[in-house]
Design a protein around this nucleic acid. Structure first.
Lengths: 188, 188
DNA sequence: CACCTGATGTCAGCTCCTGTCATCACGTAG
DNA sequence: CTACGTGATGACAGGAGCTGACATCAGGTG
């Protein structure tokens, strides 16, 4: 055993999610999170930039996966087809994390500050996708619009996937949302 | 003359924008804003919920205008056509406020916290548009996707309108973005 | 004149977050 | 084996954002 219990970061994340869920984000102090993880407040801020970020550590992974899949699409693929590959890759990643995603999302939707943070992560994703499309030769503003549209599809499919009543696979919901988007933008 | 100088709210907003532009958002304290407006810190927080909100007082107006135009579209209009009427209404509103919008946007884009707040205002707009479309009989998820797409069009048109080099009318940029969105979603 | 109202000032206090320095197990060089 | 460096952590002070509670006081109202 080392000098400290291992995985301080993970313990902080777990403690934070638990407390945010138990008593609400605003009613939880960083000192309490740290205490539950057996650490101090100062150490919390060494692992996470702020009180919100502890819930968004996985965002970078999602972005990397999405961008990677789009970048790896065949050169001949149209922008929306490349983005669809990215959406599929993301869907796969979510497949076995439904319960965790649900608890986490319940906390986020319950608080405006956390929703703000979530939105900027999605915006960062859109920006990264825009850059990737541009690297594939797509011009502006088409690249930006396609990226925003793909993120909207992800957002809405995710919203429906989270609903406990549905229980449908993420991939299916994404295909449906994509089809709806095409219908609604071409229909007018 | 009343007991106090009139328009405390407006004075605070003006002082805040000036200071944020001068020395940056983070380097400005609320006490400084209040002092420049001839008020106290406590009074600032009576007018604005937090240090960011002072830049977003007009967001409600934008949302109302957009939603009103969509709601007032002919019943026969397709979702995207109704949304286009909303986009046009918004474009008109921006027409004579370019300089103010530029200064404000420069401050916002320079700071992540302010971008977060901007994003949640846009999300609120998308939610309001979704509700309006649903009121017009559009089902989910089509309503949500159409709303998100319209907000994406607004976002990207606005980005281009702000660029000093361009100087093209907002309405024209919106039409262009809309056409690009249709092209990119139907082309694949 | 007495009273109420509403915008503001004053003050105490919590929480978030940061800078700085101390601590101390572990690894490594000698 | 000792000495030293390293890296994660603790301890402490302090600024800034934000809130609650109470005081103040010009104006309107009876």
């Amino acid at each position: 055993m080392g000098r400290w219990e291992p995985d301080a970061r993970g313990r902080l994340a777990k403690a934070a999610l638990a407390l945010y869920a138990e008593r609400g984000y605003e009613q939880t102090t960083v000192a309490e999170i740290a205490k539950r993880a057996g650490l101090t407040e100062r150490t919390f801020f060494r692992h996470y930039a702020d009180k919100r970020e502890v819930l968004f550590a996985g965002a970078g992974e999602l972005e990397g996966l999405f961008v990677g899949a789009v970048a790896g699409a065949p050169e001949s693929a149209a922008p929306l087809d490349a983005l669809t590959l990215g959406l599929d890759a993301v869907a796969e990643m979510f497949a076995d994390r439904r319960e965790f995603a649900c608890r986490r999302q319940a906390v986020i939707t319950a608080n405006a500050e956390l929703r703000e943070r979530e939105l900027i992560k999605l915006a960062s994703l859109a920006a990264a996708l825009t850059g990737t499309l541009r690297g594939r030769g797509v011009a502006q503003p088409a690249a930006g619009l396609a990226a925003e549209a793909a993120v909207a599809v992800f957002k809405i499919a995710f919203e429906r996937w989270i609903v406990p009543a549905e229980e449908r696979p993420m991939r299916e919901l994404i295909r449906e949302s994509l089809a709806e988007l095409k219908a609604v933008t071409s229909g007018a």
